[in-house]
Amino acid sequence: MIQFEVNDMTCGHCVGAVTAAVKDVAPEAVISVDLAERAVRVEGVPDADVVEQAIREAGYSPSRKA
């Protein structure tokens, strides 16, 4: 599982945009978003860099969590 902190994700629209961005590059991904914690968890994706770049291109600033 890959985890990101996305501090500029602040509303339901943001959750939808981040989810759509990840699904665009990794349709097989299982995505879990916790808006209160500003956390995005992605499973089933071999390349975390691709996911991170997709979130950035959607206009957000993800940082990978250990």
Results as ranks from 00 to 15, higher is better:
44 G>P: 05
51 V>F: 00
48 A>Y: 07
1 M>C: 03
6 V>P: 03
8 D>Q: 10
65 K>G: 00
48 A>P: 01
24 D>M: 00
29 A>C: 08
24 D>T: 14
45 V>C: 01
14 C>K: 03
46 P>M: 08
49 D>T: 12
22 V>F: 01
58 A>V: 12
19 T>C: 06
62 P>D: 03
27 P>S: 10
29 A>Q: 07
47 D>V: 09
45 V>D: 05
6 V>N: 12
36 A>H: 12
55 I>W: 03
29 A>S: 12
36 A>K: 13
41 R>I: 14
47 D>Y: 04
41 R>E: 15
64 R>W: 11
24 D>I: 03
47 D>L: 02
36 A>N: 13
29 A>L: 07
3 Q>R: 15
13 H>M: 09
66 A>V: 13
22 V>G: 04
63 S>F: 04
64 R>Y: 07
29 A>W: 07
57 E>C: 03
50 V>M: 09
65 K>M: 14
47 D>P: 03
15 V>T: 14
56 R>T: 11
27 P>N: 07
41 R>G: 05
56 R>H: 02
48 A>L: 05
4 F>P: 06
66 A>G: 14
47 D>T: 07
45 V>E: 00
8 D>N: 15
59 G>D: 10
3 Q>M: 13
63 S>G: 00
42 V>I: 15
34 D>Q: 09
1 M>V: 15
61 S>D: 14
5 E>Q: 11
46 P>S: 14
3 Q>P: 02
23 K>W: 04
61 S>N: 15
6 V>F: 03
13 H>T: 05
22 V>Q: 05
42 V>T: 12
20 A>L: 03
2 I>K: 11
33 V>L: 11
54 A>S: 10
39 A>L: 15
60 Y>A: 03
61 S>T: 15
36 A>M: 10
62 P>C: 03
36 A>T: 11
46 P>E: 14
25 V>S: 05
30 V>Y: 00
29 A>F: 08
18 V>I: 15
15 V>L: 03
34 D>R: 09
8 D>T: 08
34 D>T: 15
43 E>S: 07
11 C>S: 11
7 N>G: 14
49 D>A: 14
16 G>H: 10
58 A>C: 07
19 T>K: 04
43 E>L: 01
15 V>E: 14
16 G>M: 08
3 Q>G: 02
9 M>A: 08
6 V>S: 06
45 V>H: 08
42 V>G: 02
63 S>L: 06
